[in-house]
Design a protein around this nucleic acid. Structure first.
Length: 270
DNA sequence: ATAATAACCTGAGGGC
DNA sequence: TGCCCTCAGGTTATTA
């Protein structure tokens, strides 16, 4: 499900509800996520949440003793609820707070993760090698141009590579390439500096706009407050295969790149 | 080292 | 109704 805008929306949604709260207990109903959930969580009590932030598609929830590292995978969700709300199927983990609220982690496909570390979470093995944040100045035309050189792979694959730039998933990769008028099939090394400038601009624009709309809800994404994202209405290519390109009117093509559905206009995107 | 693909899961929707 | 197939906001591990 979640790409950067959905993770950011989730992060902002839980922040005020959990910061300064003290954990009464953590309930694990299902520990078989992407990586087994550590039983050490069961012993974590009376610790206070001090900060909530995002790195790539990971949510970092820091406490007085260490940090929770949460990834939503394809179908994960975090919701702030009253502790009396009964759990349902796929509600795998509850963080129960002293004030009677809880943070509930739900994930039907179990591709997500809930990790715990007492060290610097940014140095964790799964976070240490991540690429640059797309909304920071370090992600610019020169950076992208540099990393595209010597890359013998389609540009769509490259911008979805979390070691290059983080947060861009399948939806926003399709949208950004459409807006930048660059074919998803172009070999990375064929991009000019100007192409890279356009692509950087498009990625920034699409992610910022999506965050503003609370992300994209295709089927099951909900914010921490249970609201869907409204960016789906703004999607220009994703899910529109066979329909008319809103720029030239030609039917949008659909192909697969790295097992991911790719929609583009073969007339507008060169 | 780099690039393609297989694997991890559940659920929804379409065709027959 | 049911069965079989394909597809889905991601990432890692394995293979060539």
């Amino acid at each position: 499900m979640p790409e950067l805008p959905e993770v950011e929306t989730t992060c902002q949604g839980i922040r005020s509800a959990v910061i300064n709260q003290t954990i009464r207990e953590i309930v694990i109903r299902e520990s078989r996520l992407r990586w087994p959930v550590s039983r050490a969580l069961l012993k974590l009590r009376k610790i206070q949440i001090t900060n909530v932030s995002r790195r790539a598609k990971y949510i970092l929830m820091q406490s007085t003793l260490g940090s929770f590292i949460i990834h939503l995978g394809m179908s994960g969700r975090l919701c702030c609820l009253d502790e009396k709300i009964p759990y349902q199927k796929h509600d795998h983990i509850d963080f129960v707070f002293d004030n009677g609220t809880l943070l509930r982690y739900t994930d039907p496909r179990r591709f997500g993760a809930v990790l715990w570390t007492t060290k610097d979470p940014l140095k964790h093995r799964y976070l240490a090698k991540l690429g640059v944040e797309p909304l920071l100045p370090v992600f610019n035309a020169h950076y992208l141009h540099r990393v595209t050189q010597n890359k013998q792979q389609p540009i769509k694959q490259l911008i979805m590579d979390q070691k290059v730039v983080v947060g861009v998933g399948n939806i926003y990769a399709n949208e950004a390439l459409y807006q930048a008028k660059i074919s998803p099939l172009r070999y990375s090394h064929s991009l000019s500096l100007n192409d890279c400038a356009e692509l950087v601009r498009a990625i920034r624009k699409i992610l910022t706009a999506a965050i503003k709309q609370g992300g994209t809800t295709l089927r099951d994404f909900l914010s921490a407050k249970g609201k869907p994202g409204y960016f789906k209405q703004k999607l220009l290519v994703y899910g529109r295969q066979g329909m008319a390109c809103l720029h030239c009117g030609q039917s949008l093509d659909v192909i697969r790149i790295q097992q991911r559905t790719t929609v583009y206009c073969s007339t507008c995107q060169i």
